[in-house]
């Protein structure tokens, strides 16, 4: 005798049984993480837009000892672990592409080194200023330079990441992600490359807060970051369940 199924329990079961749950969790962590990141870097600590590389020492010392920087570093320390989860979204899609595994590995290593150098190092540098009062102004200035250069100068890692991703999309026969996104990702790579002069210029359009290396790069980067995740959303949604890694084989019909 069949009992009427409880609709609420059915719904509960439905989302937990969703085969793509892992991907959706990873995906939805992204807006959370990025918003947190944005909050930390902009209104809280005013690290972004980048401060001038030619700031005077008293300004730098004030900044490193500021209360807001302390809060920003606390949040960053707690939330940093979500970076790999966001990156997992890219890797899940590139895995479905027909291209060589070398692209996925390159992307993975690029993402790892990028996160370490581009996020962890600045966190240490600014964290040292915030959590450990008592360093001399000269040391604080060095940490300030180190932090910003690591944040913006870590372009090499991201170059590898985006070049691998862009090329993979362009060469992919399965058309997981649209070709125009591949080309847009190549532009991402180009803007990372244009950031190379930040190591040399301390002012002007090629400094780390410059028109060419930062502001224009941002006008290309911000839309790209939104668009890429939109495309990934569509890709996750449209992936046939049978293709999933955790797809169960079709049950055998009783004779």
């Amino acid at each position: 005798m069949a009992t009427a199924p409880n609709p609420e329990a059915g719904q509960d079961q439905a989302w937990r049984k969703n085969r793509k749950l892992d991907q959706w969790i990873a995906f939805w962590s992204v807006p959370f993480f990025f918003n947190l990141f944005g909050l930390v870097f902009v209104p809280l600590s005013w690290m972004m837009p980048p401060r001038s590389p030619s700031s005077t020492t008293p300004h730098i010392v004030d900044f490193m000892h500021s209360h807001n920087l302390l809060i920003a570093c606390v949040i960053l320390t707690l939330a940093f672990g979500l970076a790999p989860v966001s990156n997992a979204c890219y890797l899940m899609q590139i895995k479905r592409m027909s291209v060589s595994r070398a692209f996925r590995y390159s992307m993975m290593i690029g993402a790892i080194t990028g996160a370490i150098v581009g996020m962890l190092f600045p966190m240490f540098c600014f964290g040292l200023g915030a959590f450990r009062p008592g360093y001399s102004p000269a040391v604080l200035t060095m940490l300030y330079d180190f932090g910003y250069l690591a944040f913006i100068g870590s372009l090499g890692c991201f170059c590898v990441m985006w070049m691998a991703f862009g090329l993979a999309i362009l060469l992919d026969h399965n058309n997981i992600l649209p070709k125009w996104l591949g080309y847009y990702t190549v532009w991402q790579y180009m803007t990372e490359l244009i950031a190379a002069p930040v190591w040399i210029a301390k002012s002007g359009p090629f400094a780390w807060n410059g028109l060419m290396t930062f502001w224009f790069a941002m006008t290309l980067y911000v839309p790209w970051q939104f668009i890429v995740y939109l495309c990934i959303y569509k890709a996750i949604k449209s992936q046939p369940e049978a293709e999933l890694d955790n797809a169960r084989p079709e049950p055998q019909r009783a004779a």
Binding site: P178, K179, W180, G182, Y183, Y184, V186, W187, M190, P205, L211, M212, F216, L220
Partner: peptide
């Protein structure tokens, strides 16, 4: 391929910005 034209036009615009700056 039309997507190459997407790249070409975009690249021309990006470099265009660099030229004007």
């Amino acid at each position: 391929d039309p997507s190459m034209w997407f790249f070409v036009i975009g690249d021309l615009l990006i470099f265009g910005v660099y030229f004007v700056v």
